[in-house]
Design a protein around this nucleic acid. Structure first.
Lengths: 179, 179
DNA sequence: TAAACGCGGAGTCATATAGTCTGCGTTACC
DNA sequence: GGTAACGCAGACTATATGACTCCGCGTTTA
């Protein structure tokens, strides 16, 4: 068939973490390392989410990203559109008015309305989009909460604060050994 | 979003012509020229349709392709699958068990079952496939027949026979002037 | 003032799409 | 029985896109 990019996958995973962070901003670097994905690549994904109004970024030392609105108000479709743009499923080449018997001037009946094949593809695309629109970040968060044990949340919070602390000279001795 | 290839579009258009040819085989070269698309490219598409059991090819001089079964028994989904293979809409990277707090050994609860995000994508893909499966070549042929005037069918038949005649030395004088 | 942030652009590498260009074996027809 | 129209298969190319990396700038906070 076709294929949604890994950027979409990264984005949704990150947004799920943001949904669980209770409004506190998380940096893209932390999110990348927490999930074992590329920092620089993730850094190119968040601006798209910001332009789409899904997250808001704050610059500076304790900056990062937080959700622009409640998780229940963010659908999977909105995320996909933010990342992928509005590339259609099917790109009609209008072959119907290229028929050899028409010569250079295809008749009106051949070019009027939407190509029947295109119409089917549009309906299929709409069905997919409807399904994506029917699921929100809140739904995903509930599913996740049903699987993860309570102590996991604490472990992640520890990991976050430890990371923040390691950066401040005066706590952990982790000067990042160069390779 | 993602994107169905032009091969799918070419295939469906060609199959529609085959559906209207009343069992008479049409050559891929004729079909390409009739629709103003590449002959050599179209020649790479038909073997896929044949392997999928949608068309049957006959070699030799008056050979070509014809439908393997009735148009009503050929869904758009079958054509798409024949051309594109079974590439999934979403290719889950299993990020969930890559979480940094897990270290090298992700717990069972994190890897059990289907990833929640993946599950949403699977439902969306299924919705799209259901819609594609709901439309057949026969449906498309009906829509087309509702638009094209009766004389168009005759014009195409003329075009076909004229092409066949031009090839036989002894009727039309069209020795294909070399460019 | 330095380090942690978000931004933005340029550049790399691999894969896939959309094509082309051969050649080979088969078949019908004169 | 040869030639031309067929299907069939493989090698080749060019362009685009996805998945990154690298670099540098402006902002903010401790």
């Amino acid at each position: 068939m076709a294929h949604l990019t890994v950027s979409v996958e990264y984005a949704i995973h990150c947004l799920l973490w943001l949904a669980g962070s209770a409004g506190a901003p998380l940096s893209s670097r932390d999110l990348a390392e927490l999930q074992g994905i590329s920092q620089s690549f993730l850094a190119k994904i968040f601006p798209k989410l910001e332009k789409a109004g899904i997250v808001v970024g704050s610059e500076g030392v304790r900056g990062g990203y937080r959700l622009a609105r409640a998780p229940a108000e963010i659908s999977v479709l909105q995320i996909v559109d933010a990342i992928e743009g509005d590339k259609p499923l099917f790109d009609c080449q209008e072959i119907r008015d290229r028929c050899a018997v028409f010569g250079d001037a295809p008749p009106v009946w051949a070019t009027a309305g939407v190509c029947a094949i295109h119409a089917v593809m549009l309906k299929a695309e709409q069905a997919m989009r409807d399904e994506l629109a029917a699921h929100t970040l809140a739904d995903l968060a509930v599913t996740f909460a049903g699987k993860a044990p309570p102590e996991f949340i604490l472990q992640v919070q520890d990991w976050m604060t430890e990371r923040a602390g390691a950066r401040k000279p005066g706590r952990q001795s982790k000067p990042e050994p160069p390779s």
